[in-house]
Design a protein around this nucleic acid. Structure first.
Length: 900
DNA sequence: TACATACAC
DNA sequence: TATGGTGTATGTA
């Protein structure tokens, strides 16, 4: 989405714009006045003023600090920053071509495409409470994204507000992404309407492409006037003024005329879009302080259009409008085609062209050597334009010189205000004041500012960074009755639990967020030693927090307008999968020999390598693999390597903090594989032990109800005990497979599982699995997709299919540590034996003594968390995870009373 | 770890 | 009548 801009810059530029100062200035004042009138006296407004005051105090504090700085201190800081700048310059990578693509007024454009009547009329998408975006016509009235609809209506009574339709936007976004993937399969989508592409490789490949591959048929006006098949043709947009706009009456103009349309003519120079923006950029450089009404909070007016956007809205209307104007030309243009050149600029034109052909929507783009710059560039020619920043230092320095700090992603209104108070307005100022910034801001911030001032940003697009939290929150009209608050809390937990479970996540920290009727926000968090994902667990934790808040204001009621629940500190399914992958690697089973995989070991007997061999039990396989030192080494080194920093300064500190020191020379000997381990930190050592045990490290974080028998409630780790319907026996089976009873079959190839009135249809396949206890092969149907590693939603597991493992016919199991045959009575007994074998006492000793030598900064972490993983968890599995001490624990009766 | 704040979209 | 929801990062205690 487009970024918004502070009021002051907007007003100041208006004042300097000779042609439009009167109209826009008045317009701006009108907008401010209307917003102010609609806001003043409201609780929201009062809170905004309060927040603003806090920022002002922060500024005062900072200025006081500034006064106390010594010359020597600043010189020292200057030296350090210069060293850092030199380092950053040395590491500058100009080799990549990064593109940032942003769909113009996306939701509004999609709606306009489907309902062309809004092409000429002001329209917003959202609700009376909040708009997500608005079209360019509405923006001329000051109607912007993140503005309440009722205020937008006051600004523009003719405004139509359409409801959000995410399904539709998602579908369009998918279409656009299909195009992105052709240029960079590893493109990174930031939101429905925004993505980064690294087209470096594409540019190389493209050099060898025949012209035909760069030629596209055109079904719209975009091809009009283009030389058919002309190599490197430039599409020039000529804006033709159709009708003189009535100045100063925009608010009363209920149906603003479409004043300009575009024509494309071939040119070698570039487009008029660029010259249009260049002329605007002159005004940008003439910025000065603004006149914000004294009694108005500037924050309230953050969404007023920037000059660039206002001008663009006048000059360049949404593309669908343009297309409509050329409706008569469509036929003529239907057979045209256009060929794009080889440069990055041409590639991006091609992408935008294809997006418009495919979706009838326009996009803006920025092309630069890194993400930070590309993002700024894409904003330059919005809407429907693109800007290239050449990959050379001189051009970048020149570009950054006049760039207002607020234009940089990550510098918001507060940071902008803080910087302005230090007389820092542009990125060049950021560089010049680097010593001051180093003294007044944190090291991280100062470094960040320095990188920005040099135009240095990330050059590698990282995809699929793991999710760190998941939350759900709701705004409502005031609720203050405790029972209603509890009920709401439970609903939120229920919703969150569903989503968390769908993603196969397990979290340890629950955060309750509340906003009172005065818009004051509070968060309260608690971390549990064990992970959770169920509604019950989330609710039990969140309720504790909520009760404390209710009590804290008693005898007054807790009057809320928002409540949210967040789960974080995840150990997710990916970790489980990775872990399993490592176990497979540990067992020296590679993909190339999938027929012999750990999970399908029956095939082992038919594999040429293993013909005639008896299927091995799980622990026998662990034992066999244990002997394979090479395999062990692979797994082990990969597990113990720790995080690899990406080379940036920012990450170095994190790495330093996280990493423990090297293991002492004596090392730690794994009690399972008996190999000396050079792990960094006990945590990794514990991970290794878990590998050796062939158990899932985080199994204790998986809800036991999914993995264990309800009958024995054992929390059996990699196993599930299931009753097979066909042989009517209980079996102990590895839980990598999702097992369901054959009864669940409703039709061939599918299972339908009923739960709480809902049924889920899942594709399944028949498979055979060896019972690890009785060594018999049994048939199961397993879900082919969706769930794995035993993370079965309730709907799939039929509790009736579980039974006590003790019922299994073959009552013994091999201990992976001492290798003796242990009687299989129940898991608890077996775990006890395992713990003895692991010599819990020794591990504890290592945890408390060795660790201080092994791990410098992370000692407490390792002692409290990681240490527990190995030495305690096996006995803890069957127990209810201990809850963090809450100040108040509601009695069950009390809660029940509320829900009856 | 807990919490608040800032920011993006 | 009425000012969102989701997620990440960072500073501070």
């Amino acid at each position: 989405m487009e970024t918004t801009e502070g009021t002051s810059g907007f007003i100041s530029r208006m004042a300097l714009n000779d042609n439009k100062a009167g109209m826009e200035g008045l317009n701006k004042e009108k907008i401010n006045k209307i917003i102010f009138e609609a806001s003043k006296g409201s609780r929201f407004y009062e809170n905004e003023l309060k927040k603003e005051e806090q920022v002002n105090q922060r500024i005062q504090k900072m200025l006081l600090q500034k006064e106390q700085l010594t010359k020597q201190g600043l010189e020292k800081a200057q030296k350090q920053m210069d060293e850092m700048a030199a380092y950053l310059e040395r590491s500058r990578d100009l080799s990549r071509t990064i593109v940032h693509i942003d769909m113009d007024a996306f939701y509004a454009a999609v709606e306009t495409r489907d309902r062309p009547e809004f092409a000429h009329r002001p329209m917003g998408v959202g609700s009376l409470s909040m708009l997500s975006t608005s079209n360019y016509v509405a923006r001329r009235f000051g109607v912007r994204a993140a503005m309440p609809g009722f205020i937008a209506k006051r600004l523009c009574p003719e405004l139509t507000i359409l409801p959000l339709n995410f399904k539709k936007y998602e579908a369009v976004s998918k279409e656009v992404c299909e195009i992105f993937a052709e240029y960079d399969p590893r493109y990174v989508r930031m939101s429905l309407d925004e993505a980064y592409l690294d087209i470096t490789q594409h540019l190389k490949d493209r050099d060898t492409w025949p012209k035909e591959r760069r030629t596209f048929a055109s079904s719209s006006i975009l091809s009009r006037g283009c030389d058919k098949g002309t190599e490197g043709a430039h599409l020039q947009v000529v804006e033709v003024k159709l009708e003189q706009e009535r100045e100063g009456e925009m608010h009363d103009d209920t149906e603003p005329a479409l004043n300009y349309v575009k024509q494309l003519v071939p040119t070698a120079k570039g487009s008029v879009e660029e010259s249009c923006m260049e002329s605007n950029s002159e005004h940008i450089t003439n910025e000065h302080e603004s006149h914000v009404p004294l009694n108005c909070s500037p924050e309230l007016f953050d969404d007023v259009p920037t000059q660039e956007e206002s001008s663009c809205a006048e000059l360049r209307l949404d593309s669908p409008l343009t297309l409509d104007c050329f409706a008569n030309s469509h036929e003529k243009a239907a057979t045209a085609s256009v060929t794009f050149g080889l440069s990055a600029d041409e590639v991006v034109k091609e992408i935008r062209f294809r997006i418009e052909q495919k979706t009838r929507l326009t996009a803006s783009a920025g092309i630069a050597p890194n993400m930070l710059l590309a993002k700024v560039c894409s904003d330059r020619k919005k809407p429907n334009g693109q800007f290239v920043l050449p990959p050379n230092e001189a051009a970048i320095h020149q570009f950054m010189k006049e760039l207002p700090t607020r234009k940089v992603s990550g510098i918001g209104k507060v940071t902008e205000k803080l910087l302005k108070s230090l007389d820092i307005n542009t990125c060049q100022d950021l560089f010049e004041q680097r010593a001051l910034l180093a003294m007044l801001f944190s090291e991280t911030s100062a470094r960040h500012f320095l990188a920005i001032s040099l135009g240095i940003g990330a050059t590698r697009l990282e995809r699929n960074s793991e999710r760190k939290s998941m939350s759900t929150e709701r705004t409502f009209s005031e609720i203050s009755k405790p029972e209603e608050l509890y009920s709401l809390c439970q609903k939120l937990c229920s919703d969150l639990a569903k989503e968390v479970q769908e993603e196969g996540l397990q979290g340890r920290t629950v955060t309750l967020k509340i906003k009172n009727i005065n818009f004051e926000v509070k968060t309260r968090a608690v971390s549990s030693p064990s992970t959770m994902s169920s509604e019950e667990e989330l609710f039990a934790t969140a309720l504790d927090l909520l009760k404390i808040e209710i009590e804290s204001v008693q005898p007054q009621p807790l009057r809320l307008r928002l409540m949210g629940v967040r789960l974080s500190s995840f150990v997710d399914r990916m970790d489980l999968k990775k872990q399993q992958k490592s176990i497979n690697a540990f067992l020296n089973i590679e993909k190339k020999d999938e027929s012999c995989s750990f999970l399908q070991q029956e095939s082992r007997t038919t594999c040429p390598q293993h013909v005639g061999q008896k299927p091995l039990s799980f622990f026998q396989r662990v034992e066999a693999a244990r002997k394979d030192e090479a395999a062990l080494h692979d797994v082990f080194t990969s597990r113990c390597a720790g995080e690899v920093p990406d080379g940036s300064l920012q990450r170095t500190a994190i790495q330093d903090k996280k990493n423990c020191g090297e293991t002492k020379e004596a090392g730690l000997v794994c009690p399972v594989c008996l190999q000396k381990q050079n792990c960094k930190g006990l945590y990794n050592f514990n991970m290794h032990i878990d590998h050796c045990l062939g158990l899932t490290v985080y199994s204790n974080d998986v809800p036991s109800k999914h993995l264990s028998s309800p009958a024995c409630n054992s929390g059996l780790l990699n196993y599930v005990c299931c009753r097979n319907e066909s042989d009517d026996q209980n079996h102990i089976l590895p839980s990598e497979k999702d097992l369901s009873t054959s009864e669940a079959h409703q039709e061939e190839g599918y299972c339908t599982f009923a739960s709480q009135g809902n049924s889920t249809r899942k594709e399944v396949s028949e498979s055979e699995t060896c019972c690890d206890s009785c060594q018999q092969t049994v048939s199961w149907c397993s879900c082919a997709e969706g769930e794995s590693a035993g993370l079965l939603p309730d709907a799939i597991v039929s509790p009736g299919s579980f039974a006590d493992p003790a019922a299994c016919e073959a009552p013994s199991i091999t201990c992976p540590v001492c290798h003796c045959s242990q009687p299989w009575a129940d898991l608890q007994a077996f775990n006890t034996h395992l713990d003895v074998c692991l010599n819990q006492e020794t591990i504890s000793k290592l945890t408390s003594h060795e660790c201080t030598d092994m791990c410098s900064p992370g000692v407490s972490d390792i002692n409290t968390n990681a240490g527990e993983k190995t030495s305690i968890r096996r006995n803890k599995l069957a127990e209810k995870p201990p809850k963090k001490k809450a100040k108040y624990s509601p009695s069950k009766n009390t809660i029940d009373k509320f829900f009856k």
